[in-house]
């Protein structure tokens, strides 16, 4: 997990702080949507090959849902939310106001519920970055896949053209305090080349 050679620890701290604020904002929106308190770990910002994201989340054959949203504008990139299967079903129950355990399969309504979660989180995240930096970002329609983690992540990686490079990964885990209702998810933001520079410039941290 080596840092990007051009980035100092100040830059990495700034990335972490931005992610913290952005995700904090996103979680408030999600909490309002499901009417429950949701926490997160302090985000980690690193540069790693995209392949390694699979190892960070779990086993290659683990069933997960993944919402991916393309970002355009000043800081183009790709935002990903990955939830394990149990959490995916719990999220649907929460959104639909059902007893936990009601949902056992992801039907069409469930699918749009999960995509909506991704939408709300991304919108709030992008909004927070805008209020900090005045950088404008637009999010595209969410895409959903649910299958083996390895299959989902490698397909995304290939489709987004992130095969050769190291990517900036902002990762956090979302969870709920009540043990019986625990939801855990991972958030990733993959930025395109040049995006980071613009982000730092807007924050008054130039890159050498």
């Amino acid at each position: 997990m080596a840092n990007h050679p051009e980035l100092s620890s100040t830059h990495m701290d700034a990335l972490r702080e931005i992610s913290n604020i952005g995700m904090g904002n996103a979680l408030t929106s999600l909490a309002q949507l499901v009417n429950r308190r949701i926490n997160m770990d302090v985000p980690v910002a690193t540069f790693i090959p995209f392949e390694q994201t699979v190892d960070l989340i779990g086993g290659s054959e683990e069933l997960v849902s993944c919402v991916s949203i393309r970002i355009t504008g000043d800081v183009p990139g790709l935002v990903l939310f990955v939830f394990n299967w149990e959490s995916t079903l719990k999220l649907v129950d929460m959104l639909m106001g059902q007893e936990p355990g009601t949902t056992s399969e992801l039907d069409e309504i469930g699918q749009s519920a999960v995509m909506e979660v991704g939408n709300v989180l991304t919108g709030a995240f992008v909004g927070a970055i805008y209020s900090l930096t005045a950088l404008e970002m637009k999010s595209a329609v969410p895409l959903l896949a649910y299958d083996m983690l390895g299959a989902v992540m490698t397909s995304l990686m290939v489709a987004s053209g992130r095969v050769e490079e190291q990517v900036l990964l902002i990762e956090t885990r979302l969870f709920q305090e009540q043990a019986e209702n625990n939801i855990s998810g991972h958030f990733f933001m993959l930025t395109e080349p040049g995006s980071i520079e613009r982000l730092f410039n807007a924050l008054g941290l130039s890159m050498t």
Binding site: L143, A145, A151
Partner: peptide, 17 residues
Amino acid sequence: GAQMFLGLDDKMTLNIG
């Protein structure tokens, strides 16, 4: 060679699978 994400947007429609 599957197509994992359904309804891919323009930039991603190139069916790599």
